[in-house]
Simulated scan of single mutants.
Amino acid sequence: MNKVFCILCAFALAPSVQAQQLDPGNIAQSQFAQVDADSNGRLDMAEQERFDSDMMISMDLDESGAADMDEFLAWGFGFSAVAEERGREANYQTASRIIFSIMDYDDSGEVTLEEMNGFQAAAFAYSDQDDDGELTPEEFHSHHFMNIAAQEALMPIQ
């Protein structure tokens, strides 16, 4: 009887656990933890640049040294599953296309690591609300351009 009860409880809780995992805030927290290489709870620009370099390597599927629009959209930044679950794929793709266009500073149709670093430096400076050269989880979640765009794209229109 206890086993059956436990199994039923597990099935009852599964959707809420899945919904929590697909929450944009949880994704932003997970991204923050990935960038925070020294796990001190704050991001500095060196950590961001290291992460950007790794991200570019994983995004650049054709190994051209830059990511084109298709590669950028395929990467998804972790929010694609939320967009799909919420029926907001078109909104999320539009937000991603806008971010790509802003990053593609020379309008070449590709984002280089240099362009990504420039975008991230501007996003970092904007997000650093207390101007201490580091981002807290709150600053990263609430003020970083990419998180703002993704969260807004995933929100229902009211």
Rank of each mutant, 00 (worst) to 15 (best):
Met1Asp: 09
Met1Glu: 06
Asn2Glu: 13
Asn2Phe: 14
Val4Leu: 10
Val4Met: 08
Phe5Asn: 09
Cys6Arg: 15
Ile7Lys: 11
Leu8Asp: 02
Cys9Gln: 09
Phe11Trp: 01
Ala12Phe: 09
Ala12Thr: 04
Ala14Trp: 02
Ala14Cys: 03
Ser16Arg: 14
Ser16Trp: 14
Val17Ser: 07
Gln20Asp: 11
Leu22Ser: 10
Asn26Ala: 13
Asn26Thr: 13
Ile27Gln: 03
Ile27Tyr: 03
Ile27Gly: 04
Ile27Val: 11
Gln29Lys: 14
Ser30Gly: 09
Gln31Arg: 13
Phe32Gly: 00
Gln34Met: 13
Val35His: 07
Val35Met: 04
Ala37Cys: 11
Asn40Pro: 07
Leu43His: 07
Leu43Ala: 08
Leu43Asn: 07
Asp44Val: 07
Met45Ser: 08
Gln48Pro: 09
Glu49Phe: 15
Glu49Trp: 15
Glu49Leu: 14
Arg50Ala: 11
Phe51Glu: 03
Ser53Asn: 12
Ser53Gln: 12
Asp54Tyr: 14
Met55Arg: 10
Met56Asn: 01
Ile57Asn: 14
Ser58Phe: 05
Met59Thr: 04
Met59Gln: 01
Asp60Thr: 03
Glu63His: 14
Ser64Arg: 06
Gly65Phe: 02
Ala67Phe: 01
Asp68Gly: 04
Asp68Cys: 01
Met69His: 06
Asp70Glu: 11
Glu71Leu: 01
Glu71Trp: 01
Phe72Tyr: 10
Phe72Leu: 01
Phe72Asn: 00
Leu73Asp: 05
Leu73Ala: 10
Ala74Arg: 11
Ala74His: 11
Ala74Lys: 11
Trp75Lys: 12
Trp75Asp: 04
Trp75Gly: 08
Gly76Tyr: 02
Gly76Asn: 02
Gly76Asp: 00
Gly76Thr: 01
Phe79Thr: 10
Phe79Pro: 04
Ser80Asn: 14
Ala81Trp: 10
Ala83Ile: 00
Glu85Ser: 15
Gly87Asp: 06
Gly87Met: 06
Gly87Thr: 08
Arg88Asp: 04
Glu89Lys: 11
Glu89Ala: 14
Glu89Trp: 10
Ala90His: 12
Asn91Pro: 09
Asn91Ile: 05
Tyr92Trp: 07
Tyr92Asp: 02
Thr94Val: 09
Thr94Trp: 10
Ala95Asn: 01
Ala95Trp: 00
Arg97Tyr: 03
Arg97Gln: 07
Ile98His: 15
Ile98Glu: 12
Phe100Leu: 07
Ile102His: 08
Ile102Asp: 02
Met103Asn: 00
Asp106Glu: 04
Asp107Gln: 03
Asp107Pro: 02
Ser108Thr: 01
Val111Ser: 00
Leu113Cys: 03
Glu114Val: 12
Met116Gln: 05
Asn117Trp: 05
Asn117Ile: 10
Phe119Ser: 01
Ala122Pro: 03
Phe124Arg: 05
Phe124His: 04
Phe124Ile: 06
Ala125Asp: 08
Asp128Met: 05
Asp128Asn: 07
Gln129Met: 12
Asp130Glu: 07
Asp130Lys: 13
Asp131Asn: 15
Gly133Ala: 07
Pro137Gly: 05
Phe140Asn: 05
His143Ala: 12
Ala149His: 00
Ala150Cys: 05
Ala150Asp: 00
Glu152Asp: 13
Ala153Gly: 10
Ala153Tyr: 01
Leu154Thr: 06
Leu154Phe: 07
Met155Gln: 13
Gln158Pro: 15
Gln158Phe: 15
